[in-house]
Simulated scan of single mutants.
Amino acid sequence: MDPILLVGFPAVGDFVRCHSAIRILAERFPERPIDVVTSPGNVSFARFMPHVRKAWPLKKRHMELGLAERRSLVRELRQQNYGSAYLMTSTIKAALIPFMAGIPERIGYPQELQFGLVNRFPAGWLRHLWAFGPRKTRLYEEVCSIATLDARPANVDWPAPQLVIPAAELDEWRSRAGVEAGKPALAIFTGDMTSSRSWPMERFISVAKDHSNRGWAVWIVGGPREHDAANRIRAELPQAVDFTTTPLLDVMYQLGASALFLGVDGGMSHAAAALNVPCVQIFGSNLSYIHGPVNDHVRFLEPPISTPSWIEDTSGVSEERVREALAAAFAEPRRQQGA
């Protein structure tokens, strides 16, 4: 049967959330291969997504039209004979790709009035179109609505994103990185320390020291934005490992090999949750439901309910609550993927 093309998001967390739609499509059309278009960095994540056959990288940044590169990608896509394209991102730039590739069925929300470029819409698309301002529904719900055309069966939950790393690859990474398989590791994702999404640095350091004193390895994960935080943690805890300069593919192994994950709102938090790692995640007031992972093993901590809902600052989350949540998450048996 004709393969399916899913046009995903460039950001890590948003792209990971697209796997819910991929799981739905794989169940609806088990005989049709599924390929994705996303940013080059996300190709590293796509290879760990069940049901994804191939990931096509698109290098242009969000604000760049990049017609020359899109034409180059379109020439390759035309050779694949895709029958349907599912547009997770509701932009004209995204819709141009399947339109130029001649894919007959192009499904998505016409949020930028890309009628013609998109020719099939989920139920309730007009109401969605008129919902100006901040997003009214979770991104998770939007991508699942596109994949199902909003045909949600009664009493059936949409699936959560899922990433799976082959055990042999994880063992090979441990050997290459010199990681002790029997020593538990706490992976810390601080986010950008200048952002309101992050958590006070002195509290991250205190939690890291506590776990190190109890025989844990401490890994700081992320990318360039987290490198300054890694330096500050290592200044107080030299034995902590700074993984913020490693390739994105290795970040997947770091997350998959960790025994616990402590993080804030960001792409690494979605990846850790999808990898089934026990997670404690810190968010601003009333934001975890909208922006957080939907995997049900994640423990969210937010400022007290008395804090106004528009407060993004996380300083209201105490160190004591984080320690208790980490202990509870580690004590809970790790669930099987897909359960």
Rank of each mutant, 00 (worst) to 15 (best):
I4L: 11
V7K: 02
G13A: 10
S20K: 09
A26H: 14
E27K: 13
F29T: 05
F29K: 00
P30W: 06
E31S: 13
D35A: 14
P40G: 12
N42T: 09
R47P: 05
R47Q: 15
M49L: 07
V52M: 00
K60L: 01
R61V: 13
E64W: 07
L65P: 03
L65H: 01
L65F: 09
A68D: 07
R70Q: 15
R70Y: 06
L73H: 04
L73N: 04
R75H: 14
R78F: 13
R78D: 14
Q79K: 15
A85V: 04
A85T: 11
I92D: 02
K93D: 03
A94T: 15
A95Y: 05
L96R: 00
M100P: 00
A101D: 06
P104F: 07
P104S: 04
I107T: 10
L117T: 06
L117P: 11
P122L: 09
W125Y: 06
H128R: 09
A131W: 07
P134D: 06
T137M: 00
R138Q: 11
R138L: 05
L139R: 07
Y140E: 02
E141G: 07
E141S: 08
V143C: 06
A147V: 07
T148P: 02
A151S: 12
R152P: 00
V156C: 01
P159L: 07
P166D: 09
A168I: 13
E169Y: 04
R176W: 09
A181I: 02
A187R: 11
T190Q: 13
T190V: 15
M193I: 15
S196K: 12
S198F: 02
V207G: 00
K209N: 13
K209H: 13
S212G: 05
G223T: 00
H227Q: 10
R234T: 10
V241R: 03
T244N: 08
L248S: 13
L248F: 15
D250S: 14
Q254P: 08
Q254I: 12
G256N: 14
G256Y: 04
A259D: 13
A259I: 00
F261M: 10
G263S: 06
G263H: 01
D265W: 01
G266R: 03
L275W: 02
S285C: 10
Y289H: 14
G292K: 01
G292C: 04
V294A: 02
E302D: 01
E302G: 01
I311G: 00
E312P: 08
D313Y: 12
V317L: 07
E319K: 00
E320H: 10
R321W: 05
R321F: 04
R321S: 14
R323V: 00
E324D: 13
L326F: 12
L326M: 15
R334K: 15
G338I: 04
G338D: 05
